[in-house]
Design a protein around this nucleic acid. Structure first.
Lengths: 252, 252
DNA sequence: AGCGCCTCAATTGCATGCAGTTTGGCGCCC
DNA sequence: GGGCGCCAAACTGCATGCAATTGAGGCGCT
């Protein structure tokens, strides 16, 4: 099986993809919460580009489901409904089962080392519910997808994983993800062992447990008061990476 | 189970989505073949908008994998590799199994009628390999996805189905799709009967057979000579719907 | 005081203009 | 005759400018 070229899915030029990456990261690290406003001007100013580019980036992120674009209205970070979150997890389960099915018993030594290193990093950044470890946990799954060498699979797994990540900030209590790390280790072990069925069911139950830990109430009142949540971020954001919110307003 | 709002996935404003839809359709009907050039100017002129909008539309389609965007180069209709085609079908199988799993035994009378009407239409537009019946066959699957009321699932199934459609124009011989119509009918029947396992395996084998009919050779020399294939389309395109190709050039 | 209208700042929708890059065609040299 | 290099045209990358829409605050009316 010859290694295929690692083609970039789309991510047109450069400036656009830089903004996309930055916003994606800000969103999944919950520096930008669902409902946060993303005015084209502010984005452009923050990243030193024109509105045209910022707009294009927002378009891409909207295509990924991370932001919502309403005609003539300010773009906002997407606020998936509980049902959409559930759907996303269902899809994710199927996709990631496919990933591990393709990978079982086929990992190279280098790949195994990479995976172990990543999980070690997850272990290092402990804190369970802090944004960075959530991001790392998500990236573990994306890393797996990359190893299939299937750009399409990478794209879909990434997208849906980001979406799931986004829902965690909406519907999850400060859940601990340490157990998830152990599950990651178990998945690696099963992959190395090459037991297809085992690793598929491991992945299934792993994601299922993440989902059920996260999506607790059928329809919680949107968690806490958005105003409170946003407050600490609105004034300074993350300094270097995150667009500063122009005003603190109750989103919607 | 309350009916969820049929949210539009992204498709920002209007003009952009009009162009996207038109191009998507032109591509899956094979009026625009893989490799066909899509200069922003021509698109803008054709649709009566500025390059900015055409560019944005191309960005969206690139995010869907239907066109390829290379920096400083003319955008072209995507030319998936044989391996990518195979990957797309693998993903599609999983996604559509999920669709029918969710749908089994849950279709309303109206939905059943809609499905039957669609298959009748497929039957009417017989011709097996003509672009319209290929499009209809694809839309049958998208119609199914819609009935899950899961916008995310709709999006992914649509995208991956379009991609598969695109590969058909590259790698398939003038295959007949009449058998596919019967398989569609069988799927509807199984859905109505509510036999989850049955309908999932039906869908699996249906897509698998489409894939294997289509993806015949492991690595055919890109099918026939692209120049020959393009010739009849290059001069006139489809008149009203399709952007006219500026020149006949061997793509690549 | 409460309610509704109206105006204006904020923001998006879109086109155009300019600069930089690629293309491919012509001419020159070997 | 064939290959190499230069040049103009074509095209993209991006910013800016203008018109249109929104929504929010202020004003007057009841």
């Amino acid at each position: 099986m010859a290694p295929r070229a690692a083609s970039k899915t789309a991510e047109s030029s450069d400036k656009v993809s830089v903004i996309c990456r930055a916003l994606r990261r800000a969103i999944i690290e919950q520096a930008l919460e669902p409902g946060a406003k993303l005015p084209e001007d502010s984005l452009g100013e923050r990243f030193g580009v024109s509105r045209t580019i910022a707009r294009h980036a927002l378009g891409q992120l909207a295509a990924e489901g991370l932001v919502e674009l309403r005609r003539n209205r300010i773009a906002v970070v997407a606020t998936p409904s509980w049902q959409e979150a559930r759907d996303a997890f269902d899809i994710r389960i199927e996709l990631e089962r496919l990933v591990v099915r393709q990978l079982a018993g086929k990992l190279t030594k280098a790949q195994i080392a990479t995976l172990n290193a990543h999980v070690d990093a997850e272990d290092g950044a402990r804190g369970g519910s802090d944004p960075v470890s959530i991001r790392l946990a998500t990236e573990f799954h994306i890393l797996l997808a990359h190893m299939t060498n299937s750009p399409i699979l990478v794209r879909y797994v990434s997208e849906v994983a980001y979406r799931c990540c986004l829902t965690l900030s909406l519907y999850s209590r400060p859940h601990s993800s340490e157990c998830a790390i152990n599950e990651h280790r178990a998945i690696i072990a099963a992959l190395v062992k090459g037991d297809e069925g085992k690793v598929m069911s491991l992945m299934h139950s792993h994601l299922d447990s993440v989902a059920s830990r996260a999506l607790v109430a059928p329809a919680p009142q949107r968690g806490r008061d958005l105003l409170d949540i946003l407050a600490p971020y609105a004034e300074e954001g993350d300094g270097d990476r995150v667009v500063k919110l122009p005003k603190v307003v109750r989103a919607r």
